[in-house]
């Protein structure tokens, strides 16, 4: 019973809201119609309620200019913030890349260690080429590919 009355209340509220919206729309239409009728009546009769012999100063224009200025400042700020975020993101990526663990196959690591390259943190191109000097072209390519996959070289 309670459940049913609750559902009824929800239905009624929904109905009221719909009716309210329709009434608001009707009132708005009526207002527009009245404004049009007044304007037409004024045109027909030639009567004007108020005229002021001052040039129409568009006070809204000043406000508009002010808002435009604010918008420009806001856009500039947004651009600066975006640039900052981009910079942070890039530096973050670099940091992540630097801090990422570099894993290479054990055989490659052993081979590089034999050639005197025990650390991969500061691997220089010249040193790597010198270390791979004794290998065939295919082997050099394979080792470099492994290092590239591991992120040791870029």
């Amino acid at each position: 019973m309670d459940l049913q009355s609750g559902e009824n209340t929800v239905d009624l509220t929904g109905n009221f809201e719909r009716v309210e919206a329709r009434l608001e729309a009707a009132a708005s239409l009526l207002e527009r119609a009245v404004a049009l009728m007044v304007e037409r009546d004024s045109e027909r009769s030639g009567d004007v309620q108020r005229i002021v012999a001052a040039v129409e100063t568009n006070r809204g224009a000043g406000r508009e200019a002010e808002l435009e200025k604010k918008l420009e400042a806001a856009e500039q700020q947004i651009a600066e913030l975006r640039a900052q975020v981009r910079t942070h993101a890039e530096s973050g990526t670099e940091t992540r890349a630097k801090t990422a663990r570099k894993t290479i196959p054990a055989s490659t690591a052993q081979f590089l260690a034999k050639q005197g390259l025990s650390t991969l943190e500061s691997l220089e191109a010249g040193a790597l080429d010198a270390a791979l000097h004794g290998l065939s072209l295919e082997q050099r390519i394979a080792v470099k590919a492994q290092l590239l996959r591991a992120g040791v070289v870029s």
Partner: peptide
């Protein structure tokens, strides 16, 4: 200076220049 008029009557509102034939200075 500039006037302010109320209840002005315009001879022909479709005219390019309105001719005010009646008004009250406010």
């Amino acid at each position: 200076m500039s006037w302010e008029l109320a209840d002005a009557h315009v001879e022909d509102m479709r005219a390019e220049i309105w001719t005010l034939t009646r008004a009250t200075f406010t």
